[in-house]
């Protein structure tokens, strides 16, 4: 393989496309973590995921690209937007989105990037593969999943079920024991005595569809 490796620079056309998409993804990701508007962050996340889906397409992984668009862009981001809405986050500019240890975080992040990039470049500077379409088609992947990976797939479905139940239990408010202090009545509830965690009743009483709409509905659909 090393004999026909072309030079790293100038990049080929595919690589140029991929790099452009990568730049878009990185830029929008940067905006996600730096923007002062919560909703904008979610929207920049859409851009980032979209660019990544494009990158998957360039890398011949079509099915993954579509799943990416469907689940990430279609489900997860919407879920996050619901979360933003339900937590009554301020729409528009808000100053307090960054915590105090931003400098430390930046340092650690830059360090992580430096280490990772250094290792990756040193390890894979000469790695090259010609792109051949078809490797990531739905048929191929489906065959692989339901042939080789069927057991993990089933396990994953159980995991999804557990996540669904957990989300229902966590978000429902009407299945707690009668405890007036438990429901958040006060504005910031600073004086509420620290009540111990409520022993939850046996979960999954089946009626969590309405109250647990945020998590369960989506997840169940995605899992299918």
């Amino acid at each position: 393989m090393t004999s026909q490796v072309p030079d790293l620079w100038p990049p080929s056309a595919q690589e140029v496309v991929f790099l452009l998409l990568g730049v878009v993804a990185l830029g929008s990701a940067l905006l996600v973590v730096t923007t002062r508007q919560l909703v904008h962050a979610a929207l920049w996340l859409v851009v980032c995921f979209g660019a990544l889906a494009g990158g998957y397409l360039v890398l011949t992984a079509e099915f993954v690209a579509w799943v990416q668009v469907l689940i990430y862009v279609g489900a997860i981001v919407v879920l996050l937007l619901f979360g933003i809405m339900l937590t009554r986050a301020p729409i528009g500019r808000s100053a307090g989105l960054d915590s105090g240890n931003r400098v430390t975080a930046a340092t650690v992040a830059v360090g992580t990037a430096a280490v990772l990039v250094t290792v990756v470049v040193q390890g894979f500077a000469t790695a090259y593969t010609p792109l051949e379409p078809g490797g990531g088609a739905a048929a191929t992947l489906g065959a692989s999943i339901f042939r080789s990976w069927v057991l993990p797939f089933e396990a994953l479905s159980v995991l999804l079920l557990a996540a669904l139940i957990g989300a229902i239990v966590l978000s429902r408010t009407d299945i707690r024991p009668a405890n007036p202090a438990a429901d958040a009545g006060g504005p910031a509830a600073p004086t509420t005595p620290p009540h111990p965690p409520d022993p939850a009743p046996p979960p999954a009483d089946g009626s969590g569809a309405t109250a647990g709409e945020t998590g369960s509905g989506r997840v169940s659909r995605d899992g299918g």
Binding site: L8, P11, S12, Q14, E15, F18, L19, G22, A25, L26, G55, V58, L59, V117, V120, V121, F124, A125, A127, Y128, T129, P130, L131
Partner: peptide
């Protein structure tokens, strides 16, 4: 496709 590009991204 050089693997380095997507890896760096």
């Amino acid at each position: 496709m050089h693997v380095v590009y997507p890896l760096v991204v």
